[in-house]
Simulated assay, not measured.
Amino acid sequence: MWTDEMLALWVPIAIYWIQCSFFEILMRLKIPFFEKYRIHSSKERSNRNRVPFTKVLYMVALQHILQFAFGYFLLKVEDPATRTSKTDLAIQKTASFLFSYGLTNTTIASYVSWMIHQMVIPALQFVTAMFMIDTHQYFLHRLGHTSKFLYKHFHSYHHRLYVPYAFGSLYNHPVEGFFLDTLGAGLAYELTGMSPRLGLILFTFSNLKTINDHCGYNFPWDPLNVCFGNNGEYHDIHHQPWGIKKNFSQPFFTFWDRKLGTEFDSKDLEKRKSAKIN
Rank of each mutant, 00 (worst) to 15 (best):
M119C: 12
F53D: 03
E78R: 12
N49T: 03
F97Q: 12
S147T: 08
G71H: 03
A81V: 15
L150Y: 14
Q137K: 06
H158C: 04
T84S: 09
Q63K: 01
F70M: 06
D88N: 13
E176F: 04
S46M: 11
S100Y: 12
Q92L: 11
T84R: 12
V56R: 00
F179T: 05
S42P: 05
L74Y: 08
E44H: 13
S147L: 09
H64E: 02
F70Y: 12
L170Q: 00
F179E: 03
N49W: 04
V77S: 14
F139L: 11
S110V: 09
F139T: 11
L140M: 15
Y58C: 06
M132T: 06
S169C: 04
A166N: 09
I108C: 06
Y165C: 01
N172Y: 05
A81C: 06
F97C: 13
A109D: 03
E176T: 07
H159C: 07
K43N: 12
T94C: 11
A166S: 14
L150M: 15
H153I: 05
Q125Y: 04
A69T: 15
I65G: 02
V60P: 00
K86S: 11
V120G: 07
S42F: 07
R142S: 07
Q137V: 07
Y171D: 00
I39Y: 05
T84Y: 05
K152L: 08
S85F: 08
V127I: 15
K55D: 06
H145C: 13
Q125F: 05
Q125W: 04
L143A: 15
F53T: 03
A90Y: 04
Y37P: 03
V56F: 00
I91A: 11
M132R: 04
S113G: 13
S85K: 14
M119N: 12
V56A: 00
A109Y: 02
A61H: 09
S100N: 15
L150S: 10
Y162I: 04
A95H: 06
L103Y: 07
P164A: 03
Y58A: 11
I91F: 08
H136P: 02
E44T: 11
A61E: 05
H136W: 15
Q137E: 12
Q118Y: 13
I133Q: 02
L161Q: 03
H40N: 14
S46R: 13
Y111M: 10
A61I: 09
I121F: 11
G168V: 00
T146S: 10
G177E: 01
F167I: 01
S41W: 02
S147Q: 10
A95T: 08
Q137S: 08
M130N: 05
F139E: 10
H173R: 01
G144P: 05
T128M: 13
L103T: 11
S42M: 14
H136G: 04
V163Y: 02
R38I: 08
W114C: 02
T54M: 10
Y58W: 08
Q137N: 11
E78I: 10
L57W: 01
R48K: 14
L180P: 00
P122W: 07
V112W: 05
L103W: 06
K152A: 12
